[in-house]
C-alpha cells in the first residue's frame, strides 16, 4: 500500500522455479519427473485455498468441487474439440462461473462460518453423487461418455496452442506445471499486496468494520472466491493431464479434506505454508505407500490432530516466529479470520 512492497518472495519463487525447470529434467528420468509433476499440480490447488481461506477468510469444506470441475471440463473439452487450448481456458472459466454462482448464493445470503462449511461440503457431495451416477451411454456430453463411477479415461494431453499435433511430453508437462505454480504464486503475491488485497485482508480481520467504512464485503469475498475457483480449476486441468484420466473421486470428501490438511500443516494465512504442507504430506503419503505397512489415514489423521493441538499456527508461521527469536503467541482462535470472529459475531449457531 505504501511502497513497502516486499519483492523477495517473488524473486525467490522465480529462482526456485527456474532452477527446478533447468536442473531437474537433467538429473531425473521421465518416471521421476512425472512423480514430481504431481507435487507442483497439487501445490497449485493448495495455493487456491490458501488464498480464499488464508486471506479471504472463507473456509470452504468442499474446495475440491472446483478442482473436479476443472478436471472434468478439460476432459470433456479436449476430447470434443480435439485441440486443447479452449479446453484449458474452459477448465478455469467453468469453475470460476460456478464459484460466482455459488459465491453469490453464499455471500449475498450472508452465510458464514460453519454454515458456509456445511453448504460447500454439501455441494461437493452432490457433484460426487451426480458424477458417480452417470454410467451408461445416455450420459454423454458431445462425444464424451461421462462413465459414472469409472470416470473418463484416455484424456488427451495438452497441445501447444494452434498445433494440435504437438502434445506435451512428460518433461514438458513438468516444466509447464512448475511454471504455472510459480506464476500463480507470484500473481497471488501481487494481488495480496495490491489495494484490493489489503481490503480483502481487512474484511477477514473485521467484516463489520470494513462495512462501516463503506466496503461491500460481499463483493470482495465473491471476487476472492471466484479467483480461487479458477485457480483450483486450472489445477484440475493439469491433474487430468497428469493422469490422463478423471473420476468422481476428484469430488470426494477425502479430496477436500486433503487440501485442508495441507493448509493446517503448512500454516493458514500464508501462501508458502500450504505449498510446503502439500509437498510434505504428499511425500509422506507416497513414502508410506511404498512401505505398505502403516495405514495412510492413521498417519494423516494423527498428524492433523497433533498439528491442531500443538502447532495451531502451522509450520511456516511458527518457524518464521522462531527465526525472529520470539516465542509463538497463542492465538485466540486459530482461524478467527475464517470464522469472521469479529466482536459482533463471534458466536456460532446463536
Amino acid at each position: 500500500m505504501n511502497g513497502s512492497r516486499n519483492y523477495w518472495p517473488i524473486a525467490a519463487a522465480v529462482i526456485a522455479a527456474l532452477s527446478a525447470i533447468i536442473v531437474l529434467p537433467v538429473i531425473y528420468d521421465e518416471y521421476a519427473l512425472l512423480q514430481l509433476t504431481i507435487y507442483a499440480i497439487l501445490s497449485v490447488l493448495a495455493l487456491s485455498l490458501a488464498f480464499i481461506w488464508g486471506y479471504g477468510g472463507i473456509l470452504s469444506f468442499g474446495h475440491a468441487v472446483f478442482f473436479g470441475l476443472g478436471a472434468y471440463t478439460y476432459a470433456i473439452g479436449a476430447m470434443n474439440f480435439g485441440e486443447t487450448t479452449i479446453a484449458l481456458l474452459l477448465s478455469m472459466v467453468i469453475p470460476a462461473l460456478f464459484a460466482a454462482a455459488l459465491g453469490y448464493f453464499l455471500f449475498y445470503g450472508r452465510i458464514s462460518d460453519v454454515y458456509l462449511g456445511a453448504i460447500t461440503l454439501t455441494v461437493t457431495l452432490i457433484f460426487f453423487d451426480l458424477a458417480s451416477s452417470t454410467s451408461g451411454p445416455q450420459y454423454r456430453i458431445g462425444q464424451v461418455a461421462l462413465g459414472g463411477f469409472n470416470g473418463i479415461p484416455s484424456i488427451p494431453q495438452l497441445n501447444v496452442p494452434g498445433f494440435p499435433d504437438w502434445t506435451l511430453s512428460t518433461t514438458e508437462l513438468f516444466i509447464l506445471s512448475v511454471a504455472i505454480l510459480a506464476l500463480v504464486y507470484i500473481s497471488l503475491r501481487l494481488l495480496i499486496s495490491s489495494d484490493f488485497g489489503r481490503v480483502v485482508i481487512a474484511i477477514k480481520e473485521n467484516e463489520v468494520r470494513a462495512e462501516l467504512l463503506g466496503y461491500d464485503a460481499r463483493k470482495y469475498k465473491l471476487v476472492t472466491f471466484v479467483i480461487g475457483g479458477a485457480i483450483a480449476g486450472l489445477a484440475g486441468c493439469l491433474f487430468a493431464n497428469w493422469g490422463g484420466f478423471t473420476s468422481p473421486a476428484v469430488f470426494a470428501l477425502g479430496q477436500s479434506v486433503q487440501i485442508i490438511i495441507w493448509m493446517v500443516v503448512g500454516g493458514v494465512g500464508t501462501l508458502a505454508g500450504p505449498v510446503i504442507g502439500c509437498v510434505l504430506m504428499q511425500w509422506l503419503t507416497s513414502s508410506l505407500a511404498s512401505f505398505g505397512t502403516v495405514n495412510n489415514n492413521l498417519v494423516l489423521g494423527g498428524i492433523l490432530v497433533i498439528v491442531v493441538l500443538l502447532l495451531p499456527q502451522g509450520l511456516v508461521p511458527t518457524i518464521a516466529r522462531l527465526a525472529r527469536g520470539r516465542r509463538p503467541v497463542q492465538r485466540l482462535d486459530a482461524t478467527a479470520g475464517a470464522l469472521g470472529a469479529t466482536p459482533a459475531k463471534s458466536e456460532v449457531g446463536a
Binding site: 473456509l59 485442508i260 493446517v264 489415514n297 489423521g301 492433523l304 495451531p312 486459530a334 482461524t335 470464522l339
Partner: peptide
Amino acid sequence: LVIRHLYGRVIDTMLATWGLSLLFIGLVTT
C-alpha cells in the same frame, strides 16, 4: 485428550475431529 483443549475454537475443533475421523478409519482398517 482433544476436545477439551479446543473449547471456543470452533474451526480448530472441526479440523481436529476431522483428523480423528481419519485416525479412526485407519485404526479400524488396521
